[in-house]
Design a binder for these strands. Sequence first.
RNA 1: GCCCCUGUGGCGCAAUGGUAGCGCAUUCGAUUUGUAAUCGAAAGGUUAGGGGUUCGAGUCCCCUCUGGGGCUCCA
Length: 584
Amino acid sequence: MMLDHGTLEQDHNNQTDILRHKMRHSAAHIMADAVLQLFPQAKMGIGPPTQDGFYYDFDVPQPFTPDDLIQIEELMNKTISQNQPFIRKELTRDEAKLLFADQPYKLEIIEAIPDAETLSIYSHGNFTDLCQGPHVENSSDIPAMKLLNIAGAYWRGDESRPMLQRIYGTAFENQEALEDHLEKLEEALRRDHRTIGRDLGLFSAHEEIGPGLIVWHPKGGILRSLIEDYWRDIHYRHGYNIVYSPHIGKSNLWETSGHLGFYKENMYAPMEIDDQEYFLKPMNCPFHIMIYRSGLHSYRELPLRIGELGTVYRYERSGVMHGLMRVRGFTQDDAHIFCMPDQVESEVGGVLDLTFEILNAFGFKDYQISLSTRPEKYVGELSLWDHATSSLESALQSRGLEHDIDEGGGAFYGPKIDIKIKDALDREWQCSTVQFDFNLPERFDLTFQDSDGERRRPYMVHRAILGSLERFFGVLIEHYAGAFPLWLAPNQVTIIPIADRHYDYCESVRDTLSNSGFRVEIDNRGERMNQKIRQAQMQKVPYMLVIGDREQENQMISARSRESGDLGSMSVHDLISKMQSEIK
RNA sequence: GCCCCUGUGGCGCAAUGGUAGCGCAUUCGAUUUGUAAUCGAAAGGUUAGGGGUUCGAGUCCCCUCUGGGGCUCCA
């Protein structure tokens, strides 16, 4: 949630942002300058500043190498040290076309700029680029800069257009800020859920199984079942009905739902069973609709909320898979709400409240909310769209939730609210989503009997809060860097006997804790205590209990916490109370 | 799917075209330890897979697959 942080700080942040924006934009120009000096045949694409850096795209005969990057950076530093002023000039279309006659991508950009807009160029040294600006005054106003990596990128993001070579870099107002940023990138790498997932034994993927298909290991499995238990419990409390549905369904079902029409490229090839085609499910909605349709519904039953932890399979192109964040088989915490028009707003509000309650419980505080409105191509009546969109809007507003508006960004079947969570690398991942659907109720001819006896069409809302358990788990791992809060830690307590003669007492402590519902392990390897502590720390176990002669004699334990080290001696009972209060 | 990079014991890495090594982890033995790494030994690899060049390939070339950084799309 974006809360008000006070205007002073905001002003400062804005000014820094503007400064960085300008300096990065200018750095992109200086980079293009360097590239053209080294590779005169290069054709320039675009070179904008981004959230934390800048890039520039080039069409070059040979892709850049890491060595090229070093050379380019050297040349850039030279330009920066030469104090070259940035000069803005306005010019006519014809002048611009002449100037960029051998730069086809620039010509394309010029063509695309509306006639009413003034064209401008920025120059430094011998380099000139078509550009709106603004820029820093002088090349020396880029105190700290570094090129980061090379990647392919389609011209205008369109895969039917040529692939250009993109160079990413970043720039900051001083060396310290740059180093902080690089340090942050390293920290993000350390938090990478793929690394932590392996080190903590949470999950894995295998060449033998196939890309984008995850196996959850015992420790990941405990975490998942804790998440699922919490999810079920809170959903029951919020009036949801929890259901189960199969993984495949006949082609008829998917034809009726329309998925074979508009979602086929994400669905796997059908399998034939008794002369009928069956498809692996990419979504749960048709099954929930069949549950709805298996009886007549009175207005008294609405709203009807049907939820499921439903595992779906979607084809993802081979280059897009990413750890747990983007996979081919995943479990959605899906639900469908069937309701009457006058219930829409409170239902949407209820979903939002539930969403933030759940996300908060997992420790998430920073979200990015967006409302997506009606696209050009859509189904359903305009009045329904307007009603739905305004109810989404007012549900957000009445809760004081700041949000972006993605005009025309809704699905063809309804407007939606998306909520994104940031991962360790500041990439945003969509988890929660609330979507209206004006398509499926029509296609499946859903009705309810209203108080006046008439059959009416219910509103249908899709919603997911965690999104997919896989992705949510990935974000959770990075959020905590593997040091999960006590209630989620796969192993909550490791008991460390000092010598063999303490095993029996350790087992009695273990039993006491287990009987109170805690997950406990005893490390009875023939290792030194320090080694056992080290391993438990690296496994991010919240509590370690050191047990030796002193403890055994006094029937106590010596507790150590993952965060604050030695907590001293206490009774098992005290430890239990301490942990219980930490959990609730 | 596309562009680039990558692939060596479970993990992290090494090996000018000439005998595949090291650390961690594992197993066994010794040690019985007081708040982040005890010592020793053993075991573990057709260098992702397939083809080619070469007297000789982990190393060079081609194909396939995995993984990574992006583009596009999305939970």
